[in-house]
């Protein structure tokens, strides 16, 4: 398991050590490798990308650039352009397919509000992934330390540690966590389908829900598709969005698209008054 929290002092100490080592390396002519630092655990080599200036390709290039940095220097954020969202729910479905989500478990629903009185109505759509709060209220409440913030800011759940008390669900101001009740879409039909029985890839492991094993009985949430990030791919909701209304990248890279977008004046975050400091931004 990766280190749960990196205290500021540790970080300083590590940076200092790195600086020293870099100095030694330069002095002795040893090439700097990623070994030893918390570099991406990329299992496969990152995919080669075609040329082009589509936002998706740009974001993917930026993603690969970010993966070359040590993990604690990345700051993943998501930007959702509400002016572009048409409420098609492709992101919700893409997420369900990617993470093999069973009934009742949803990581990225699209909130639907109706304004006005029928038939004179307009509708507003707000996709709601996990906000990956910088100050996550779900983390300190956990009695088993099963949920924590990674050095790159993503809030994870350790399925093997989670006792399923669901306290974190009550503590999340965004209802971003759901409980896996162990249900399947094929319940009441003659047989389980392969899309249900094939193990889910979350957190870079294979999770088999058969016989009530984790993540059944656990709390589950969006983790920005960490397994895809590790492979140099954008989260599933970003690539499935038909209108490219969802952006993703490293806010610590000032040349990145998300850094550009979050610096705009028409940006808002949900429930800022809670002090949670979400890393999902909405463009208005």
């Amino acid at each position: 398991m990766r280190k749960l929290k990196v205290s500021k002092r540790n970080e300083e100490r590590r940076n200092f050590l790195k600086l020293m080592l870099a100095g030694v390396a330069v002095a002795t002519g040893i090439p700097r490798t990623s070994a030893g630092s918390e570099a991406p655990p990329a299992e496969k080599p990152l995919p080669a990308l075609p040329d082009g200036d589509s936002p998706l390709l740009r974001m993917q290039r930026e993603l690969q650039r970010a993966l070359k940095k040590p993990i604690e220097q990345r700051r993943w954020v998501m930007v959702i352009d509400l002016r572009k969202c048409i409420g098609c729910s492709a992101c919700t479905v893409g997420c369900i397919a990617e993470n093999h989500l069973p009934p009742g478990v949803v990581y990225r629903p699209v909130l639907e509000e109706e304004i006005g009185e029928y038939p004179h109505v307009t509708r507003r759509f707000t996709p709601r992934p996990c906000m990956q709060c910088d100050n996550p209220p779900c983390v300190p409440v956990c009695p088993a330390k099963a949920t924590y913030k990674r050095p790159d800011g993503i809030v994870e759940i350790n399925y093997e540690q989670c006792i399923g008390c669901r306290y974190c669900i009550t503590a999340c101001p965004y209802s971003a966590r759901t409980f896996d009740f162990g249900e399947n879409y094929s319940d009441g039909t003659p047989e389980r389908q392969p899309y249900e029985t094939s193990p889910a890839p979350e957190y870079g492991k294979k999770w088999d829900r058969k016989n009530g094993g984790s993540p059944v009985g656990n709390v589950r949430k969006c983790q920005f598709c960490t397994h895809r990030l590790n492979a140099g791919m954008l989260p599933a909701c970003v690539t499935t969005c038909v209108g490219v209304a969802t952006y993703f990248g490293d806010a610590n890279d000032h040349e990145s698209l998300v850094a550009e977008l979050t610096a705009k004046p028409n940006v808002m975050r949900l429930k800022e008054e809670m002090g949670t400091n979400p890393k999902v931004y909405y463009l208005l």
């Binding site: 409440v141 009695p143 088993a144 330390k145 540690q161 006792i163 399923g164 059944v216």
Partner: peptide, 21 residues
């Protein structure tokens, strides 16, 4: 609780910040 067999983890995790612990 979701995993009845894991209740003991509350004793071993030492989650000082959790009111439930």
């Amino acid at each position: 609780i979701g995993h009845m067999g894991r209740f003991w983890k509350v004793y071993t995790s030492l989650a000082w910040e959790s009111m439930m612990a």
